[in-house]
Design a protein around this nucleic acid. Sequence first.
DNA 1: CGTACAATTGAGAATCCTCAAGAGCAGTGG
DNA 2: CCACTGCTCTTGAGGATTCTCAATTGTACG
Lengths: 246, 246
Amino acid sequence: MESNVHKISCPDCRLSDLCLPYGLQQNEVQQLATIVKNKRPMQVDEYLYLQGDACQNLYAVKSGSFRSFIADDNGNEQTIGFYLPGELMGLDALQHSRTTCSIIALETSTVCELPLLRLNELCSQMPSLQNQVMRIMGKGISSDHDKIIMLGHRTAKEKMATFLLMLSRRYAGLGFSSTVFNLTMSRQDIANFLGLSNETVSRLFTELSKDGVITVKQRGIQINNLATLKSIVKPCLPDDQLSFIA
Amino acid sequence: MESNVHKISCPDCRLSDLCLPYGLQQNEVQQLATIVKNKRPMQVDEYLYLQGDACQNLYAVKSGSFRSFIADDNGNEQTIGFYLPGELMGLDALQHSRTTCSIIALETSTVCELPLLRLNELCSQMPSLQNQVMRIMGKGISSDHDKIIMLGHRTAKEKMATFLLMLSRRYAGLGFSSTVFNLTMSRQDIANFLGLSNETVSRLFTELSKDGVITVKQRGIQINNLATLKSIVKPCLPDDQLSFIA
DNA sequence: CGTACAATTGAGAATCCTCAAGAGCAGTGG
DNA sequence: CCACTGCTCTTGAGGATTCTCAATTGTACG
């Protein structure tokens, strides 16, 4: 049914309010659409790019989800973040035109490719787009700061609650349910992202289930008590500071 | 002697190779200098800005050093980063023209103020400046990623070694010694930044001293064995991935 | 239906934190 | 000049959280 998602252009894309076009005039969106390349769908475990690749593009998630991670010489990975529809990937390559992390598809997904050269040209002519690019980069930076806070001084349980709330908010922003959703990443991915062992993640799912806060069925998550979840995180962040992540 | 640091303009600033002017032609630097406001010197513990302030500027460190942190409702702080000369502050406000962290001077310091509105105007006319701004934001993002890696899966000792190497590199980049320098932040600040207790930080300084890797005298640090320090971090990061932090 | 992989559960061990006391240094005032 | 105060930093002991190792269960897919 959604098999043609990758052919939809910016003006018709249901994400346009979340993605780069946000705040632009209709004719401006059309201009933006001319430089966007729609890529063919990607399969599970397919790489968008590899750490160290030359990269002169930004990529917007059109559908599906992705995981970004940095690997060291021994092959140990640290997951940096997860990307949902409307979010921008490739900001890490802005410094040296070379990616500093790898990005892999967690499910069948589609992306839009934005050549930086042409995006910059367009920015010069279109201040509103320039502002929007700046805003998005700012968002990327503050969500990274949120991650630093989460990793810095939180207990395993706080991290877990934070993670679930973050997903809840982002799905809500996409027009999906904020209390029922499927995890597209493995326990291992979550553990790695949160700086925990996967056993600890598993135990926490069990504990939160037993307390009735959530219901877990494989990768299916139902949040039964948002308030409790928030109260676990509460002491950590100003209430609106859960914007989070990319 | 350096009492007039705050009056020096971009073309004459000894930092111009590190800061925004990097890679610009001489006449372009002069143009940039016209929009830069030199601020008066700041004292220890003076705030550059407070979390939540409206902010339409970027700030470059001209001399001294700063600490940025986010506080929650209970007043608990998480240090996000430290800023040395040539580094840019205020990127966190790009999203909503409002700062998401507070920044405080660790010592007597001076900063340059760059109004975003005028910077954007100038970027439209000067593609090389546009690129440079992008590069710097990309640098900010990848150094945040480095911090996420550091906080994610590292032992206290690895974090400590990473922290010292990061400072070493940045001081070296400024033309100072990479092995002898003074910490401008307290043990508490370091602990908070690394997600450790200050007791643990203290113990690690002692341990590294006993092993002869470093010599510590109050806030004075001497690295006696860079190789050992690197070997502590080694399993964690590709060798050149210590660019780090802002 | 069997295999491969992911997730759960348990027990013991290690790291790091918390609490508490003591040491070192700077600044103040007698 | 010296004691006093306040602060940061150091050091120690005990305890809690989380990790590691190992075994078991559960699920997907051929």
